[in-house]
Nucleic acid binder design. Structure first.
Length: 422
RNA sequence: GGCAGGUUGCCCGAGUGGCCAAAGGGAGCGGACUGUAAAUCCGUCGGCUUAGCCUACGAAGGUUCGAAUCCUUCACCUGCCA
């Protein structure tokens, strides 16, 4: 099966330029070089970035050469978005983020000396020293403002609060990147999210005008759940990050374990490298034995392994089993419980030093005492899986589990550990 | 530079002197149901030493017994004009 058929089956093809021409280029003897850019808009990539990253890897495994581009330059400008003008981050901040993101990007494709060995680039390398006049004459001259104004995002922004010249110019920078990568490495395909279509074809147009060459554009669907919500937003509303300091491996695993039945099959296709047969079997499980969540568990373990490694994955699975298992927490051995607690936030407290309200705040399960009282009043506070209904409740020696732990829970699945001192 | 309009809680948005910690919607959070799912329903949604107090309606100052609401100055945004 060709890579394009594979991508189509996985639901990863949104739009593309001449598909037959692309297919021919992919089948050519020498590997096709393709790229995808990632702007440093935060200190870490998030789950949504995995789609293009993994797609680069799929291309590489199919015999193409991927370039991952860190947007050190474009990240300083900001792609126009519907919600309004971005506030600029300092040059230093963007540079630091670009550096960190670059480290994450490098983990998803293979670097070797073969013809398909991956490359990493940073567009600051060719824009950093570029002069304005040079840019305006060499790049700007090829763009029609009329066409730029017709872009959906630009139209929406003009109808709302307008947009700065800076953001309006973003298209030119990204287009120039494609041209530069075409010149340096013969890059003939750019992929990106479906919102990148305009930016990508901007590049193919520029290359055609300047170099007289035909290159390809392809976009991947914006991943949303069955409700149309943007993928990768945690239940807390924030992004789920690849950086374990921002999203713990346990939280990462839990996010995917909780994916809805209606989405899990699609996600397995898009986010994993499992075969058609394996995915078909999991689809069947989801349809016939949904309560077992075989698909969700597989999705979660595959993605946790991909991002955090086998070792971490084993640990978070064990922790999840212990904390959500059927057994009584009191029956868990000290080392099992201690290992599980290592995956969730913990804090130290001495007996007689605080009430349930203090425990909830100390563990970070709630933001304030008011919220803690509310949680208790609403019946959403638990210690060792037993609901605590009294705000003045304090743990006693009898509550302490093996290893000196109290397991504090807020709601169904927000857990934290309290280590009892003394 | 001139004129006009705008700046409200996580987001959108109502509110033109007291009844405003601020309508309504969304998001979030909790509960019930269930499968650590979806949908639905109910509740909740600034902070604290919680019958009270503090902080808050772009910023600072002022008028008033009392201001998100009135006045002054400043900042920023949008539009029109130069």
């Amino acid at each position: 099966m060709s890579i394009l058929d594979e991508l189509e089956w996985r639901g990863l093809l949104a739009q593309s330029t001449d598909r037959d021409a692309l297919r021919r280029d992919l089948e050519a003897p020498e590997p096709l070089t393709l790229y995808c850019g990632f702007d440093p808009t935060a200190s870490s990539l998030h789950a949504g970035h995995l789609i293009p990253l993994l797609t680069l890897r799929r291309f590489q495994e199919a015999g193409a050469r991927p370039i991952v581009l860190a947007g050190g330059a474009t990240g300083q400008i900001g792609d126009p978005r519907d919600v309004g003008e971005r506030s600029l981050h300092s040059v230093d901040t963007v540079a630091e983020w670009a550096q960190r993101i670059r480290g994450q990007l490098e983990r998803f494709v293979a670097f070797d000396d073969s013809p398909t060995g991956a490359l990493v680039a940073n567009n600051l390398d060719w824009t950093g020293g570029q002069g304005v006049l040079e840019f305006l004459r060499d790049v700007g001259k090829h763009f029609s403002v009329n066409v730029m104004l017709a872009r959906e995002t630009v139209k929406r922004r003009l109808a709302a609060d307008g947009l700065s010249f800076t953001e309006f110019s973003y298209l030119l920078l990204q287009s120039q990147d494609y041209l530069e990568l075409f010149r340096r490495y013969g890059c003939r395909l750019q992929i990106g999210g479906s919102d990148q279509w305009g930016n990508i074809v901007g590049g193919t147009d520029l290359i055609r005008r300047v170099e007289g060459a035909t290159t390809h554009a392809m976009t991947l669907p914006l991943v949303t759940d069955s409700e149309g919500r943007k993928f990768g937003k945690s239940t807390g509303g924030g992004n789920i990050w690849l950086d374990p300091e921002l999203t713990s491996p346990y939280a990462w695993y839990q996010y995917f374990v909780n994916v809805g039945d209606a989405d899990v099959g699609r996600y397995l296709r898009m986010f994993t490298f499992l075969s058609r047969e394996e995915i078909a079997a999991l689809d069947e499980d989801t349809a016939e034995r949904p309560h077992l969540r075989a698909g969700q568990k597989r999705l979660a373990s595959e993605l946790t392994t991909l991002v955090h490694g086998h070792h971490q994955t084993d640990q978070v699975i064990a922790a999840s089993g212990a904390l959500f298992g059927r057994g009584e927490l009191g029956e868990l051995a000290a080392d099992t419980l201690t290992a599980a607690m290592a995956e969730v936030p913990t804090t130290d407290v001495a007996l007689g030093e605080g009430t349930i309200v203090d425990l909830l705040v100390a563990t970070g399960l709630v933001d304030s005492k008011g919220a803690a009282r509310r949680a208790v009043k609403e019946g959403g506070a638990y210690v060792n899986n037993t609901k605590v209904a009294d705000e003045e409740w304090q743990p006693s020696a009898a509550d302490v589990l093996a290893g000196g732990w109290l397991v504090v829970r807020r709601g169904k699945r927000n857990l934290a550990g309290v280590r009892v001192k003394g």
